[in-house]
Structure formats: C-alpha cells, structure tokens
Design a binder for these strands. Sequence first.
DNA 1: GAGCACTGC
Length: 744
Amino acid sequence: MAKSTRWSVEENNPEHLPICQHKDELVQAVKTSPFLVVTGETGSGKTTQLPQYLCEAGFCKDGKIGITQPRRVAAITVAQRVAQEMQCTLGKEVGYQVRFDDCTSQDTLVKYMTDGCLLREILSDSSLSQYSVVILDEVHERSLNTDILLGLIKKIFSGSSKITRGRSSPLKVVVMSATLETDKLSAFFSDCPVFTIPGRLFPVCCSFGSAVGPKDTESIGYVKEVVKVALDIHGSEPAGDILVFLTGQTEIERACDLLFEKAECIDYRFDVQDQTVDGILILPLYGSMPTDQQRQIFQPPPPGIRKCVVATNIAATSLTINGIKYIVDSGFVKQLNHNSRVGMDILEVVPISQSEAQQRAGRAGRTSIGKCFRIYNKEFWEKCMPEYTIPEIQRTSLTAVILTLKCLGVHDVIRFPYLDCPEERFILEALKQLYQYDAIDRRGKVTHLGELMVEFPLHPSLTRAVLKAAALGCQDLLLPLAAMLSVENIFIRPGLLFSQPEKQKEADEKHSALAAKTGSMNDFARLLSVFQLCKSSDRPSAWCKENWIHWRALKSAFSIETQLREILLRLQQKKDFPVETFDGNKSELFRRCLCTGYFTNVARRSIGKVFCTMDSHGSMVHIHPSSSLFDQEAELNWVIFHDVLVTSRVYIRTVCPIRYEWVKDLLPKLHEVDVYELSSVAREEVTEEEVKRWETKEAAKRPPDVCVEDAMKKLEKRNNETSVSDARARYLQRKQQRNLSKSN
DNA sequence: GAGCACTGC
C-alpha cells in the first residue's frame, strides 16, 4: 500500500506543515553551508517540501536536486506526491528512479531515488556532475547504501581540489534524519549546522509489562503474552485498531491461532473469508504473504469491529496502516548477522533497540493519541536493549561493498570515513574473498575481472560464476540461475497451523517432482528448471499456483534475468572480455561454472550424513531437508552450496554435487592467505617481502585431505565456544520453551 | 528429517 494513502485532508495542504514556518531560514542555511543536517520527526514535511523550496530558490539552475530513500515504495510515492503539489506530470520536472523503473526525463529537476541507485550513479560519475544538491533522507535508518554514500560524499567533496572538478558550482549536501544522533552527523561533516523542525506526531503513552525480563532474552514465550495483552486491550480500551509486533511467520500464525482460540472460535482457517470473532478482526501480516492477502490489511474494518494486525517488522517502516491506536510490542526482531568467526550469515532472534521500540510505538500516534503496551519490563529495556540499532554496515558481509569502494578509487578501505567503522576483521575477510575470486590482486588493486564484476548487482561469488559461464558461452544456464538466487525463497510451504497438513505434503511432493524432472539431483538445476518451465508455460501464474511456487518472486526473477543479460551484453561489446572453450556435457559445464564462484563453499562428506566445509573454518554441516539431495546417499562425496542456515543444526541449503577434480586447483587458494596478513593489502602498503612470503606459502600448498583433518581439529578445539554453537544452543532453548508453553 | 525478518543494485 502506498504511503500516500495516509495523508488526511488537513495534511493535504502543504501550508499546514510544520516546515513552512522555516522555509526562508532553511533556504538560507543551504546557501551558506556546503553541508547541512536537517532533523525532524515524521510528519514535519521535510521529505516533500525541502526539495520544492530549493527548486523555487533557484538551485535547479545548475543541476538537479537528488533525494535518496532507503526503500523503493517511498521513492515512488513521495515523487508522486510532490509532482502533484508542483502541478506537473510525474517523470517531467519531478521524477523518480528505482531499479527496473526509471521515471525521469531530460526536464527532471527534482529526482527521488533509492540510495542504491545513487551509489550506482557515482560509479559512472564520481563528481555527481548532474546534481546541484544531494539530499540523503532517512539517514537514521543507517542502511548499508546510505552509510556508504555518507562516507563517499564526505571523501569526494571534502578535498577542496575536487569540489569543482567536472562541476560548475560546488555540490550542496543535505542530510536528513529523525532526531537521533544529529550531533554525530554534524561532527562527521566538519561540524556543519543542524536545523531542527518540530514534528507532528500525537503523543503515545507507553507502558512496560512484566512478562519478559533480562533473563528471557532468548525466550519466545512472549507469543502467549502478546495475545493476552491484545485481548485485554480489546476488552477494556475504547475503539481503535491494534498492531502487534512479532518476529516471523511461524510466530504470527501461532499468535493468530491463539487469538481465535481465546476469542472462542475454533473453526478458524486461513482461507475463511469471515475472520471476525467477538468483534475483533484478526489479520496476519508478513513479507512473503501473497499480495492480495496483504491488501486486506488496509481495508477499514466493518463498523463496530476492531482490527488486530499481527505483523513482523514490515509494519515498522515499510507499510503504514491507518487507524492504529494500540501497539503491542514483543521487544524482539529477527535479524541477519554476519559472523566473521565462522564466515557465515546467521539469522537470529534478538531484542530490538530502544530507538526501534520508539519507532514501533510511534506507529500508534499517526492520526490520534495512542497507547503502546510493551510486554517487557524496564530492566529488560535498560539491560538488554541497545540504545540504537547496530548499523547494517557493522553486521553484514562487506564483500560486494568493498569491491564497489575499490572500483571508486577508495584503496584504503580501512581508513575510509565510515560514520561507524565496521570491525577490521569484517573488512579483511571481504578482501580475502575478493582476492579468492580474482577480483583484486595481491596488492589490493582491482583486476580486470573485478572491474567486470562490479557492474553486476549480485554477490561476487555468483558474478564470478556468471562471468565464467559467459566466457564459455553458456550464460543461458547461469543468468536465470543467478536471477533465481537473487530473489526470496520461491518454494511455498504452507505452515502447519493455518493450513491442513495435507497441503504441506502436497507442496513438498510438487517440489520433489520438479527436482526429479531435471534428471539430476541438484538444487541449482532445480531452480534453473523452475525458471525455464514457468517461462515457457502458457499460463505462468497458474503454473506457479499448481506447483506451490511464489509467482511474485518468479516475476522479479524474470526481470532480474533481463537486466543481468543486458549488463553482460554491454560488457561483452567492450574489448578484453575473456573467452574460453570447454569440451564436455552440459550438466558438467553448468556445474563447473558454479564451482568457479562457489569454491569457497565446498563441503566434503565426513562421516555418515555429516559434511565438513573446506574453508579455513572447517565447520561440520548437514544438508537441509528442503534440498533435493537430502537423504541421497549414493556417491555424494563432494558438494558446493549456496547458503547456510543455523537452526537445530548447521544446515547447507541449495546444494549441488560436484567432482573433486573440478575444485582441486581452486581449493588451496582458500588457505593461501591468512586474513590477518591482509591488513597491509587493505592499505596498499604491501612490501615486496610480504608478496614473497605469500608465494612461499603457496608453494607449500597442502593437499585437500590434510585440509579436512586440520579443519576437523580446529573445529574440535573450538568445541562449544563457537558462535554457531551459541546460535544453535539458543535455538534449542527457544524450541524447548516453545514446547513447554505449548503443553501448558 | 525442517521452518528463512526487512531492504537494495
């Protein structure tokens, strides 16, 4: 649902916005300072009005005004809104650009875009010569791309010599944020002025509960508690809708079930249209839900009925629901964290930050005074919840970002001006990976291959495989696969609580059948086959429904494949595109290409069903039951995998059998460079001596079998101290508690 | 023998 739907009649008149009284001061502030921080709560009008003020004041004479947003919907809907206010056609004076959708023209003066789009633009025009003003919005959200943009803009436009290079006048930079951390932002841009605009949110009264305390950090017993609180609200509070925050699909389904049970309706099913019981309409909401079901959330409830939406964090920023007066906050969120100790991403349930809790509470104060019921106590707030959310740049794998920076000429990626520095080992690990993919050389310089790789909006491992395939002339196999691996999970598996178990069984059977059709048990081939079968189908959406496949996800895979194909064609027309030949069958060719990118993700069968990864961490892993290779015993000794999931075990998902010979020559590279030796590469201060030392190491390559033994020893040594074990222990604890509360 | 929040190029 578009954000624009929430503006009330009064808000429709921009002259009533708090920002209006400060128009002249704001324009003056932008004129006098190269950098400016503007803060103001939601509803102050800064996103829609400031660009118009600047345009009016003549800032569009020498270039565009560019405004970045972390989300696509926001970029599009705000542009629509501003075009309407400026009484022009969208795409003319006011436009927007997001991936797959460029709605701008020669005449565009005010351009809204996602932060990723501006980052791409800097890659081809580092002086941002088209713009007179760049406004970075929603900076407090600290998205990875916005953080990188902050550093880049500071770096490019702080050195006086570069300010005017390729530009007629100096660039003006405005950074907009909610009221948090503004001092930090001002200090980052050489103590630039801070402009504060009052917000226009209604007060939200927050109360703490007693159900969750510091000891319950990992508990999911809170599902029962949020249900209880929601029913209390329903029984005792005046009219107004309820929004409950939980962490994931399973939890939400369980909470909805409990709500219905308690509201004395036992015959509830997901499919049933009339979901109203005892005056309360219960609606689940999460990202992977079908769009038509999501749409239901936004319809006003029938008269006299109270709406209760049970949602993930999607309702915190991405979607705005009208009429919410009560918030029930579980205090938890599911977060993907990169763990450099084990070199993998781990999805885990963690307490939210205090600022995130305030954000959640704020969802109740958009149209009137609201109430927020936190189910955790004050002690939990103080001891378990960090003041601010850890910025994405400090939690995710940096491989792709570091390559982008290097291609932009930022060689010293450690001393890059980060607003918050990522841990050095995260950066070093990213460098090690880039070196392994041949994207950078031993001195940390970007290679020809690296320059090709940065053009693709994909993880470098996948890009490596795509480029190999292109060199061998089999891009038709790898491009669709890369697109499929870029989108959310395409296999639908209905939950047990809301759907009948037979539906789950049916979905599983359909998915296995798709694997069988390819003739080879290989999850990558299965993905490719789903893409091809659906694309060639007469009625693709019906085909998806029949096979329990997400049509929405597959549609985006189709557009990504087209985009990747265009990028590849453009690169192939340039000189020096590598070309190789290969004799062998198609299946081997496909898998060999994959090996070029995924040799960092190789595992060898150790004992029984246990596999051991061949990277320097040597983790013990199992094949995930959703894999078509699950329980396939025969001759399956070497595999590559796309990703890792830590739950009751460490699982590898999306798996493909390979032959040892295909990775034999690549594996030693995994052990060639010690991460900690790479700090000099990061700074490009490598001495000849160091290069020699590495070369000696390479000469002493160990055969892979020794690697396995070493890896296993290392693993034993780490024993239960590893973070994977921690995550696993926490998972088991949660599961136990869940079962306990179930049986109660 | 299982369960993956949300973005973005």
